[in-house]
């Protein structure tokens, strides 16, 4: 019996195996999460919103960084694109749903435009390139005449209620998860991982590496932008330092690494951890991020596979020995 459970768990934990069971689990969890606003207060809904938001961001980032090896520190650029697209498009009177789609489209286009430069860079240099890109975007938005400068843009759309936001975030989180699962079921899954593990060999086996990277990077960016567009609704005002701020990149990277890069569940574990840690340290906002940094250093050193990855490995070992 014990053996049966550990086999079941390790099967769920195997990062890239996706079966119908995964979709059922997601559906069950989503149904439970859907009911939360009926018996929880506004505070719980806000915490839930934050967990769903960060989890979705990290899961989206994970597509590029965890599965394809494109460790990007430029997530803020995509997030900001989502934020500003929502602000500008909704103020222009477009329906909200269309604005979300538009945000994803603009982000995908942006990925397409910057990819020729970025994909020439490998490994560490790619990372630095993305960091520079995000900073460049932020400074551009601050200074250019079209985006309201430092003061930003007010949204004319009515701010949604806490439970509405929660449900929207849930919908988007489920969408991101389903995207990830479908991707992992598809042939792109092998291609992405092959590019991550050894780009030269992948090419030698017929993988068009540029196209693979572009898909992963573009999809990851588009999903991040979708989450960003909801953040604009949440805030009611968009500003360069909020939308394109490094803090989003920091959140995404910490959540994904602490949870476990390249795993399906890791981003959600990380999101719960980071959000609860934030709630725990709510009295000490100034040291909150420093504590996150310390946790990050410790996780990289002692649990390089993150919380979920380490758990998975331990279970697999357990299975091998039993």
């Amino acid at each position: 019996m014990k053996n049966g459970i550990s086999i079941l768990l390790s099967r769920i934990a195997t990062p890239t195996r996706v079966g119908p069971r995964d979709f059922i689990i997601v559906a069950v969890l989503a149904a439970i999460a859907f009911a939360v606003p009926y018996f929880a207060g506004t505070y719980q809904q806000e915490v839930g919103f934050r967990i769903l938001q960060l989890g979705a961001l990290a899961a989206a980032w994970n597509i590029a960084a965890g599965y394809t090896g494109l460790v990007s520190l430029g997530s803020a650029a995509f997030f900001g694109i989502g934020v500003y697209t929502m602000a500008i498009a909704s103020n222009a009177g477009l329906p909200i749903a269309l604005c979300v789609v538009l945000a994803a489209g603009v982000a995908g286009l942006f990925a397409l435009i910057v990819s020729p430069a970025l994909f020439r860079l490998r490994g560490l240099y790619f990372t630095v390139g993305t960091l520079a890109l995000a900073e460049a975007m932020r400074i551009f938005v601050v200074n250019s005449p079209w985006f309201g400068g430092q003061a930003g843009i007010y949204l004319t759309a009515r701010a949604p209620k806490a439970y509405d936001l929660y449900w929207i975030a849930l919908l988007i989180a489920v969408f991101v998860v389903v995207c990830v699962l479908l991707l992992l079921r598809s042939r792109w899954s092998y291609r992405m991982q092959a590019v991550r593990d050894d780009e030269d060999v992948a090419s030698q086996l017929g993988v068009r590496t540029y196209r693979t990277k572009l898909w992963a990077f573009g999809l990851s960016g588009a999903l991040i932008a979708i989450v960003g567009s909801i953040q604009a609704l949440n805030q009611g005002i968009v500003q360069p330092n909020g939308g394109f701020g490094m803090s989003w990149t920091i959140d995404i990277v910490s959540v994904a690494i602490i949870g476990g890069m390249g795993t399906k569940v890791g981003p959600w574990v990380g999101a719960v951890f980071i959000v609860l840690l934030g709630e725990f340290l709510i009295q000490f906002p100034e040291i909150h991020l420093a504590v996150v940094g310390v946790v990050l250093v410790l996780v990289i050193r002692f649990m390089p596979n993150g919380i979920w990855g380490t758990l998975t490995l331990a279970l697999q070992k357990n299975r091998n020995f039993s």
Binding site: T16, R187, Y190, R191, Q193, A194, R196, D197, D198, V201, A202, L205, G206, V207, R208, G262
Partner: peptide, 21 residues
Amino acid sequence: PRPFTRMTVADNVRLAATNSG
């Protein structure tokens, strides 16, 4: 040999099978 070390043996083969001409 340069296998994709973090992928399973079968996935290594599937990759090549699905990217051939």
